[in-house]
Amino acid sequence: MNIQDSTTTAPASLEHALLSILTKASPGTLSAPEIAHAISPEGDWHGLLMPIRRTAVELAMAGRLVIYRKGKPADPADFRGVYRLGLPRHD
């Protein structure tokens, strides 16, 4: 399955790529364009932005990542605008 496929459930490869990239960036956060560019540096990474958002929402609802808006955790079911993604902190 291609990670750019449009499905209601995130492809496991996109979930894996997203979490892998965030693990390398931990404890920092990354924007969706930064993640998309890391997944497809030579290709059309713009096409990954919506799939990344959908996957991020699913992972945030499951507690596997955090969506940040203006530096604070955002409600994954209701956020708009520029956002960043990070792994949950266990301090």
Rank of each mutant, 00 (worst) to 15 (best):
K24N: 11
P73W: 05
L85H: 04
K70Y: 09
E42S: 14
A32G: 12
I21G: 02
D44M: 05
P73E: 04
I52N: 03
H90W: 08
P51V: 06
P88D: 01
L65E: 06
P41Y: 02
M50P: 02
L18R: 02
A36K: 01
D5L: 08
S26Q: 01
R54F: 11
P73N: 03
A77Q: 10
E15M: 05
I67L: 07
S31T: 15
M61L: 15
W45I: 10
I52F: 07
S13N: 12
L48P: 01
W45T: 06
N2H: 14
Y83N: 03
D91S: 12
G28T: 10
P51C: 05
K70I: 01
N2C: 09
A60L: 02
N2K: 14
P33F: 10
A17L: 09
A10H: 00
R80C: 12
Y68F: 14
I67M: 07
L22F: 03
L65P: 00
R84K: 10
T7E: 11
G81F: 06
D78P: 00
R89V: 09
W45H: 15
H16L: 13
G43I: 03
L18F: 06
T8F: 09
Q4I: 10
D75L: 00
H46F: 12
A38T: 10
R53Q: 10
F79N: 12
L14Y: 04
K72D: 09
V66G: 03
R89K: 08
A25I: 00
T29N: 11
K70V: 02
R69N: 10
R54H: 11
E34R: 06
I39T: 06
P88Q: 02
K72W: 01
R64N: 08
V66N: 00
G43A: 15
E42D: 15
I35V: 15
L48E: 01
T8D: 14
S31N: 03
K72G: 02
S40V: 03
D5R: 08
P33S: 10
A77P: 00
R54L: 09
T55H: 03
R64Q: 14
P11C: 07
I67Y: 00
I21L: 04
D91H: 12
H46S: 13
P76H: 07
V82G: 08
H46D: 14
L30N: 00
Y68C: 09
L18N: 06
M50D: 15
A12R: 13
G28V: 00
T23N: 07
T8P: 01
V82P: 07
A77G: 12
V82N: 10
K24E: 12
Y83F: 15
K24V: 13
Y83P: 00
P11M: 05
K24L: 13
M61W: 02
A74Q: 03
A25V: 01
L22Q: 08
S31F: 03
G43F: 10
T7D: 12
R53N: 09
S13P: 01
E58H: 11
L14C: 03
R89L: 06
L18Y: 08
P73D: 08
M50C: 09
E34H: 12
G71Q: 07
V57C: 05
T55F: 02
H90T: 13
A25W: 01
H37N: 09
H16F: 10
R80N: 14
H16G: 05
Y68R: 06
F79E: 11
T29M: 04
L49G: 07
